[in-house]
């Protein structure tokens, strides 16, 4: 056994990983979710707003991080739509506008067909330049965004009449997969202009690095898929439809994060077992070397 494990081909480890994620997905394993403080903080920042308040949703991610951030995008858009907030979408990543379209296809177009483009939501689209884009739009949005994503004049869009800069939004929601993302929004928007309130959802890799900004520069943060699941739960608890037994009766797209926590659990346990097994081999090896 020891010899087998010591010389184990790493491809067996790969296979174990594959199974630990694939099997829970196929079996639709689902566990309860208990929201923590930071997810509540994000939820409350949106809850605090009044109907018709303008909210900027900056989708700074691409398909590579959709597994973690897609569920957050769905939940954010749903929450804003339920609150009847005015949604303004933009992106610092070239593929970001597609992520926005995907979220709109999941939430607004099928479930909120009454919301009108240009009156309830607008797609500003992508601009290149990373933090230099934030730098411009915090003081003058129309300097860069002369049209919306579809080429209509920015001045012809009713929703844009009262918006001169990012400072005019009641809240900025950022979904971030790296550079440029939440860190840049903190550095160039919420720090120099404390009136800009920023909440964010980000990948697991970034989340620990953003904690020092909480709560002064960043009041709320959803970290990785767990953050997404907690926030989904909060949104569903408040706005989800229920059947006669009081159970949530909502389409699966609103449970994406919660659903993904199933494979997450099994894979985390596998990771711990792998580290422990690796260490057992290491100590046996060291003992044998010591005794010889």
């Amino acid at each position: 056994m020891y010899e087998f494990l010591k010389n184990l081909d790493r491809r067996w480890v790969f296979l174990l990983m594959l199974l630990s994620v694939a099997v829970p997905i196929l079996l639709n394993a689902r566990f309860p979710e208990k929201p923590t403080g930071l997810a509540r903080a994000v939820f409350n920042e949106i809850e605090k707003l009044n109907e018709g308040d303008p909210v900027l949703l900056a989708f700074d991610f691409d398909p590579a991080s959709e597994g973690e951030l897609g569920p957050m995008a769905t939940a954010f858009v749903r929450h804003c739509a339920e609150k009847k907030l005015k949604m303004y979408f933009m992106s610092l990543w070239p593929v970001g506008p597609r992520m926005v379209e995907d979220a709109l296809d999941r939430v607004v177009r099928p479930d909120f067909p009454d919301l009108k483009y240009g009156e309830d939501w607008v797609q500003l689209g992508y601009k290149s330049g990373y933090e230099a884009v934030i730098k411009v739009i915090v003081t003058d949005l129309k300097q860069l965004y002369t049209t919306d994503r579809f080429g209509a004049s920015i001045d012809s869009i009713p929703l844009m009449a009262d918006i001169q800069s990012v400072q005019d939004f009641s809240l900025v929601i950022n979904i971030s997969a790296g550079y440029a993302g939440t860190k840049e929004w903190v550095q160039y928007a919420s720090t120099p202009y404390p009136d800009i309130i920023l909440v964010a959802g980000c990948t697991g890799v970034q989340a620990p690095l953003l904690y020092p900004y909480i709560p002064e520069q960043l009041p709320g943060l959803l970290g990785a898929i767990k953050g997404a699941a907690e926030y989904e739960m909060l949104v569903l608890d408040k706005y989800g439809a229920r059947d006669e037994n009081g159970e949530l009766d909502e389409p699966g797209k609103y449970f994406e994060g919660i659903r993904r926590m199933g494979p997450q659990l099994i894979a985390h346990v596998l990771m711990i077992l792998l580290i422990i097994t690796g260490n057992i081999i290491f100590f046996i090896e060291r003992n044998r070397e010591g005794s010889s």
């Binding site: 184990l8 790493r10 790969f14 990983m17 792998l274 580290i275 690796g278 260490n279």
Partner: peptide
């Protein structure tokens, strides 16, 4: 997505 596999392999071999 394949990074998940490499992280598993690294956990098994490198974290002592």
């Amino acid at each position: 997505a394949i990074l998940a596999f490499y992280v598993a392999s690294a956990a098994f071999r490198a974290f002592r």
